[in-house]
Design a protein around this nucleic acid. Structure first.
Lengths: 225, 225
DNA sequence: AAGAGTTTGTGAACGCGTTAACAAAATCGT
DNA sequence: ACGATTTTGTTAACGCGTTCACAAACTCTT
């Protein structure tokens, strides 16, 4: 008995590899760009170039969704766009709550890129009483104590942690207790969550530290040349 | 002829795998936390738990740097901390320039987490004349046209793109022309750069779209249960 | 000093993701 | 109608990263 790619109980979903899932939004964006240019059909080469990936990889990724292309012709932009959007759940809007409205949280709540990708910032929450009641990007900031009520009322399943690192675990615990099952963590700290809850981490410092490492290598290389 | 892990011309650097490089800052953060708690020595188990990784993976990662532990004892926190910091170039500060001081750029320029990790925001640049001359987080915003002068004067090698997607390629071209060789791209767009320039991409929408995909699967699963 | 207990460093197996390569299937030109 | 051409979908090989498992090396107790 070998179980492949965490199949669903209902057997309908085919179990798409994580690496592929991470690229589907990229393809979707590329398809939207092509559609705006009035392109009706594209080959895997065209789309792959727009998405910045290897064409073979693109075709393999799409093959996990189904057989939506036509040999000798390519892909219908509009049709493929819809199929990917459906697969990643972008036919509906997803409400998210942002916890922590400091500089980063405020910037995220104003971020233009979310709305066009099916993400709607539905609520802002902060632990600081001085921030509660203020309005940011048209949304009134609520107290962290009201998190559960907000999450339940608006049926929110995705939370964003934009607090300092020290508060991250406490906030994560509260989000999970309130019923959130997916968390995007911007705080520079590890958060532990129970099984069934997904956490993705975006660490701004680490991205720059990785670049700094490569810069150092480049500098060392030319010093000995 | 097989070349392993992009060895350096001088032969000094051992060529650390990318996946390992990406984790070194995580280890460094965990070590700093331990040092603050007054811990002098730790085992790979201790450190791995603090960093959220498998102990075997941690040991293998560290083995690429050298043999800095003692069998039967563990790692000296302070010593290992220094060795990792040196390896990833954190014994010096890295000046970065942020291009685009909208919501996100402003938040990044105020981000507390950078300074403690050897990242210094040295300059802010924007194409909008209305923003040029204003002061954000104590830094006066310069014109995009002055980018080359700024980069040269301050010897900046790392640039951050925090503009709308449409401007990203243009900004990337200017950064590269100015002499920047590492770019962190927050814009929702692909940027093309010449060989020798590193680009890392952080896409806020995509992170949430990936979570949304998993949410959809969870929802579908229970619907048929 | 020797055995029991720890913990590192690493060789080897395994699994996932990427890429090349090609057969299958469509269109196009004559 | 049929051969040439295009392009997909997929299989197979390859490479990288992860993890297990264990010998080597150290400490501690007696």
């Amino acid at each position: 008995m070998t179980i492949l790619r965490t199949p669903l109980a209902d057997g309908s979903a085919r179990g798409i590899p994580d690496a592929t899932v991470a690229r589907l939004p990229v393809y979707l964006r590329a398809l939207n760009a092509l559609a705006e240019q009035g392109v009706a059909t594209c080959s895997s080469n065209d789309l792959a170039e727009n998405a910045g990936v290897n064409p073979a990889k693109l075709r393999k990724d799409l093959s996990y969704l189904g057989s939506y292309g036509t040999r000798g012709v390519g892909y219908d932009v509009e049709y493929l766009r819809y199929q990917i959007a459906r697969e990643i759940g972008q036919t509906q809007d997803w409400d998210v709550v942002i916890v922590g409205v400091g500089n980063l949280g405020s910037a995220l709540s104003a971020y233009q890129g979310f709305s066009t990708r099916g993400i709607r910032v539905a609520a802002l929450v902060d632990a600081d009483p001085k921030r509660v009641g203020t309005t940011i990007s048209g949304i009134t900031v609520s107290s962290l104590d009201d998190l559960t009520a907000i999450v339940e009322e608006r049926a929110i399943s995705i939370g964003i942690i934009a607090t300092p690192g020290e508060a991250a675990q406490e906030v994560a615990d509260r989000l999970v207790a309130a019923g959130v099952t997916s968390i995007l963590n911007f705080a520079p700290a590890l958060v532990q969550v129970p099984d069934g809850v997904d956490v993705r981490k975006v660490d701004l410092s680490i991205e720059l530290q990785i670049l700094a490492y490569h810069e150092q290598r480049k500098a060392g290389k030319e010093a000995t040349a």
